[in-house]
Design a protein around this nucleic acid. Structure first.
Lengths: 154, 154
DNA sequence: CAATTGATGAGACAAGGTCTTATATTTGTG
DNA sequence: CACAAATATAAGACCTTGTCTCATCAATTG
């Protein structure tokens, strides 16, 4: 089944993330708490700059260094995924199990990022991953083109 | 069939690129000529900085602005693909038809980029592309993990 | 609650990428 | 073939993203 997915975000990602970081020996600082809270509320990927801005905007400023450091910790703990797409911008998003796993459509015209998922594609990726000279840990699929809104305006 | 591919690069990509740009109304400047010539000789993606450096090294310097401008022209003409992979590095490579089409393996450890191709995966991507709310022009698949060399050293 | 150790913020720094402008080249025309 | 018009290019200022260091601050532990 292929579809733009729109399940509501599981609420417990934040808990899972905090717990796993704590187990890994990290302390529960304010910056970490705020950033995890913000990430948990997102449906799709945000850039580091957008994250910092959003935090500042809600009176919970976190320094740039902390944003990057915490994102790196989360990435290493496989709690967030790094997505690189269009214009060299790097974005980050929470990794959720099963239902939340998705890939991205990118509109070359307006830059919009749209999540989608497809089971057949996943199976194919797993198959390919085992026939390749690399121990595969992650995969990314990006489809680029023109989104519905932009096609209409044309 | 899945394999690290190593066909020799078709020689005529440079001609095709020059022609198509000329038809699009661009003049034939030296910078453009040199950059196209260099790209045509590549098997896999290079970053803008690597391209500029390579040109300088062979006494055919092209300014940074020109490198980016020309890459943008080539990208719009669908003659080069932009590949974003690890650490926010953007790389560019010529788009060739059929045999040359490939995707990328990235070693998270040493950053090495390895091309691969797989027919089944292509078919699957085509299928998915038609079931998605976007008119798909291109696709990218990136598999990340640890390459053979890095696994050994571990 | 004091000491220790890790977390954070501030800002210097580096690299990648964009933009402007003066100069050099290409191309069309007489 | 020379000239004019228009585009291409180089150089470098500038901005944005991401990294690093260090002084300060807060969470833990006994």
């Amino acid at each position: 089944m292929t579809h733009a997915h729109d399940e509501t975000a599981p609420v417990d990602w934040a808990e899972r993330a905090s717990e796993r970081l704590a187990l890994a020996g990290y302390r529960r600082g304010g910056a970490r708490h705020n950033l995890i809270r913000l990430l948990a509320a997102q449906r799709c990927a945000l850039s580091a700059a957008e994250l910092q801005e959003a935090l500042a905007h809600e009176q919970r400023s976190v320094s740039r260094a902390s944003v990057y450091r915490i994102l790196e910790e989360l990435e290493r703990a496989e709690l967030v995924a790094r997505i690189e797409v269009g214009q060299g911008i790097v974005r980050f998003e929470p990794i959720r199990h099963g239902a939340g796993h998705h890939h991205h459509l990118v509109c070359d015209h307006c830059g919009r990022l749209i999540p989608f998922s497809d089971e057949g594609l996943e199976r194919e990726l797993e198959r390919v991953s085992e026939r390749v000279p690399l121990v595969v840990a992650e995969h990314d699929v990006i489809l680029r083109g023109e989104c519905a809104a932009c096609s209409e305006h044309a």
